[in-house]
Design a protein around this nucleic acid. Structure first.
Length: 414
RNA sequence: GGGCGGGUACCCAAGUGGCCAAAGGGGGCGGGCUGUAAACCCGCUGGGCUUCGCCCUACGGGGGUUCGAAUCCCUCCCCGCCCA
């Protein structure tokens, strides 16, 4: 669905672009709205599209649902005819953004980062329009800065400004280390805006400092008009509380299988569903309000709402057929407690014990783990609990560990 | 550079010679409950084994004292605070 900008008034465009955004400070939001309106108006008048960018740091090998929130905002700009720049933080990743962390991050090697960057770009086009996306890498300019350049950039800021950021503040107050190089991160990101001559930068609410304080200031210092910051709420992870991130282990990867993505969404606590609806689905605010009203009135079971959300999200990334299959799988395995349609096969070798099969089939990580699971009655063959690790394996069937680990055990070929 | 305080399992954090494979919390996993892989309750959570117990490896690295060390000593590395 492409939006024809000529069919939307300036104010309608502005409304769309600000939909779902979150600004802690109403003053900031007013200013950003005003500035964006002005730029949209200029773009329309001069025919020069805005340069809108979103940066991601490829510190891990996969994008997750949290990344897609600002990416979809970028997509909206694309659809309104603007230039979308997907910036890979090939250089900033080496340091890691201190914004969302309460501790310093490991330094990474350039090789690691570039390997991750490749997988990022592939995954990014699940959301962005490849025809209208410019991919850039910030090592292109950041690695060329001299020490003198760095000092010049740094001279625009005070230590107090940095220490006023709550994440640095907290670490400072707790006596946790703050490494000097972490202060360079906002400078680097700010310089990205300069190098890209960005009109707009999109980011999560944790990016306020990097975008507003660092980016705008450095652009001004370089004689550019400061960019407009568009901020989106942070998507909570599978724990329902903390920001989704791989390092916290609460992420849902984009490359998860449809079944896995569906299930992971179902495992997110109910309380997080309002945000999931708003940040991940294609539903309009009106539709969301109606669903919430139904939920309130008891006409809609919380689980059913979650299932709809899960299906919608899987559909966005894997298409309608895969989403339907994922839902069927979920109903079958978790509601009806039946075995899934597909599962890996393990071929039995003569004389194997229960314990040996569990290990050999890769269902457990160690023999002790297998013993524990057996003791906890978490191992079943065709529904029968197996309670003796040393017993010979009974025979072919569906071997299940816990709720979601399955292997079809087959008889050895004669 | 000096003084003081620290470095404990996936994370946070107790423990200051044996009762410590190490309290507690989080996370993860298993079970129960549930028309949710939600919430809630119970349990488990280093590896190996001939498993009411035994062996190995583990409390920043290395070395030592001791019948015995996460706990004491030496040394090295790293962090915080104060001073310079």
């Amino acid at each position: 669905m492409t939006i024809d900008p000529r069919q939307m008034s300036l104010d309608e465009q502005l409304e769309l672009l600000f939909q779902g955004t979150e600004y802690g400070d109403p003053e900031l939001e007013r200013n950003m709205r005003r500035e964006l309106r002005q730029r949209l108006e200029e773009a329309q008048r001069t025919g020069r599209p805005l340069r809108v960018y979103l940066g991601v740091d490829p510190r891990t090998s996969d994008l997750h649902l949290g990344h897609t929130v600002p990416m979809r905002k970028l997509r909206q700009f694309q659809e309104l005819g603007h230039t979308a720049i997907f910036l890979i933080g090939s250089f900033t990743s080496l340091v890691g953004d201190p914004s969302d962390k309460d501790k310093a991050r490991k330094l990474m090697s350039f090789e690691e980062v570039m390997a991750n960057a490749r997988t990022y770009t592939e995954q990014a086009f699940k959301v962005l329009d490849p025809e209208r996306t410019v991919i850039r890498y910030n090592h292109e300019w950041l690695s060329k800065l001299t020490f003198g350049d760095l000092i010049h950039l740094a001279s625009h800021f005070t230590v107090q400004q940095f220490l006023a950021r709550d994440n640095f503040r907290k670490r400072y107050d707790k006596g946790d280390p703050i490494h000097l190089h972490e202060f360079f991160y906002p400078l680097m990101q700010g310089y990205d805006a300069v190098a890209l001559e960005a009109d707009v930068q999109i980011g999560g609410t944790d990016q306020t400092f990097n975008i507003i304080v660092a980016g705008r200031k450095l652009q001004e210092a370089h004689g550019q008009r400061p960019q407009v910051g568009i901020f989106l709420p942070l998507l909570p992870g599978t724990d329902g509380k903390m920001k989704m991130s791989k390092s916290l282990g609460n992420h849902i990867p984009l490359k998860a299988s449809p079944e896995d993505m569906y299930g992971k969404i179902m495992s997110v606590p109910d309380e997080a569903m309002p945000l999931y609806m708003r940040l991940l689905t294609r539903w309009t605010p009106k539709e969301i309000a109606a669903l919430e009203a139904d939920l309130q009135a008891g006409r809609l079971h919380p689980r059913d709402l979650k299932m709809r959300i899960a299906r919608e999200v899987v559909e966005i990334f894997h298409g309608p057929e895969a989403a339907a299959r994922a839902e069927a799988h979920f109903v079958r395995v978790f509601q009806q407690r039946e075995v899934p349609a597909d599962m890996p096969t393990y071929t039995l070798r003569p004389g194997q014990t229960v314990l040996e099969v569990l290990v050999a089939a890769g269902l457990v990580q160690s023999r002790n783990e297998a013993r524990r699971l057996i003791q906890q009655r978490g191992v079943r063959l065709d529904g029968q609990v197996l309670d003796d690790p040393r017993a010979p394996f009974p025979g072919p069937g569906v071997l299940r560990v816990g709720k979601r680990r399955f292997v079809r055990v087959a008889e050895a070929e004669p």
